[in-house]
Computed example of a mutant assay.
Amino acid sequence: MSFVRDLSVSAASAGFVATLVGFTSSVALVFQAAQAFGASEAVIASWMWALGLGMGLATAIPSLILRKPVMIAWSTPGAAVLASAGLGFDLAQATGAFMLSALMIVLAGFTGWFERVMNRIPMAIAAGLLAGVLVNFGMAAFSAAQAAPLLVLAMLATYLLSKRWLSRYAVPLTLLVAVAVAAVQGGIAWSEVAWDWAVPVWTTPRFTWQAAVSVALPLFVVTMASQNMPGVAVIRATGYQMPISRIISMTGLATLVLAPFGGYALNLAAITAAICMGPEAHPDPKRRYAAAVINGLLYVLIGLFGAAVAGLLIAFPKELVAAIAGLALLSTIGGGLVAALQDEAHREPALITFLVTASGVTLAGIGSAFWGVVAGSVALFVQQYGRTRTATRT
């Protein structure tokens, strides 16, 4: 089986780190979103079942078929929107809104309009967007030393020494040392782990125009602008060619099926995709899909075991998660900056894209990734429009 041949320690480690980072960085928001609609503990567990299985299967199966790292995640900004916009709506109305948002995502994929828009964005701006999305994770790796200096310094030393002599295994070795140091310090909360199966709970959807306007539309906008757009930027910046429209349609269809169980929004991943698509996963880009498959399988386990795996991942100190994410993304951040700044004609627009995205500014409820692309594109238009025709006439 080619997957077994292509699987490596570095790929498995990248898949695990991606799961660890993706889950622990935003699971609290998902819980808050569910609670905003009055979800019970059983319903919240059902949300984890739906999201875990949805992300896992939508990641692992296409990755195996395409032999490329197709990375799917839940919509983190979508969860933030739901946590605030959900007040005043019940679960039935929310479920109807999730399904309407999913239908709009399917339409965006089937018509191909989203991919056509992304195809018009220059690579330098896409690379600036990628670096801007990831840079805060890189800085968080070092700022975590303020709260846990011994843990982070041990991780940094392990990473640097491994990069010198065992470059391919730098991240897995760093993770092993981090877990060992955290365990010795008593920083791993084993009490959070409870071995319980997750049971799906059906919620019959109810469609109202109020929920469509207040929940479905904002959820669709932030998912496309703040998740799918950076997700495509990661794919392009790491050199992969994928059927973007079909993948977008797949995430919409998966959301449509899983919405009654709590699968509120699935989309292209950005942060975790950078981990599995970067050189730390494997030196050979053709074998990095194995990291995505491992990531998908781990998400399926999260869905099946629900509270158990959730507790296991949450048990790790937040400083460990921040540091391992930042260190695992260093190469990708560096590559993004190089690609963004190497072309002098696109350098300033790419830099503006990077800075606006990294700023974290949110306008009209839409995150900085979207506004970074807008700012960079406007700068490029102002600087470049008409220059070619002027040069031709002269």
Rank of each mutant, 00 (worst) to 15 (best):
A290S: 14
A292T: 07
V293Q: 01
I294T: 12
L297G: 09
L297D: 02
L297E: 00
L298N: 02
Y299E: 03
Y299G: 03
L301K: 00
L301P: 08
G303R: 11
G303W: 10
L304P: 00
L304A: 07
L304N: 05
F305A: 13
G306C: 12
G306R: 09
A307W: 01
A308C: 15
A310W: 07
A310T: 11
G311A: 10
G311I: 03
L313H: 14
L313G: 12
A315W: 10
A315S: 15
F316Q: 03
F316R: 02
P317W: 14
P317H: 07
K318I: 11
L320T: 04
L320R: 10
V321D: 00
V321M: 12
A322N: 14
A323Y: 05
I324G: 05
G326R: 13
S331T: 13
G335V: 06
G335S: 04
G336M: 06
A339C: 04
A340Q: 04
A340S: 00
A340I: 01
A340Y: 04
L341I: 02
L341Y: 14
Q342I: 03
D343I: 02
E344R: 15
H346Y: 08
E348G: 02
E348D: 11
P349F: 08
P349T: 15
L351R: 06
L351I: 06
F354S: 04
F354R: 09
F354V: 05
L355T: 09
L355N: 10
V356C: 05
V356H: 03
T357C: 15
T357Y: 14
A358D: 05
G360Y: 04
G360A: 13
V361A: 08
T362M: 03
T362D: 00
A364Q: 10
I366G: 06
G367R: 01
S368G: 11
S368Y: 00
F370Q: 02
W371V: 09
W371T: 06
G372C: 05
G372S: 08
V374W: 05
V374P: 13
A375D: 01
A375Q: 12
G376L: 01
G376I: 03
S377P: 01
V378H: 12
V378N: 11
V378A: 15
A379K: 12
A379N: 01
A379Q: 07
A379P: 04
F381K: 12
F381W: 12
Q383M: 10
Q383P: 01
Y385S: 13
R387G: 02
T388H: 11
T388G: 14
A391H: 15
A391L: 14
T392K: 10
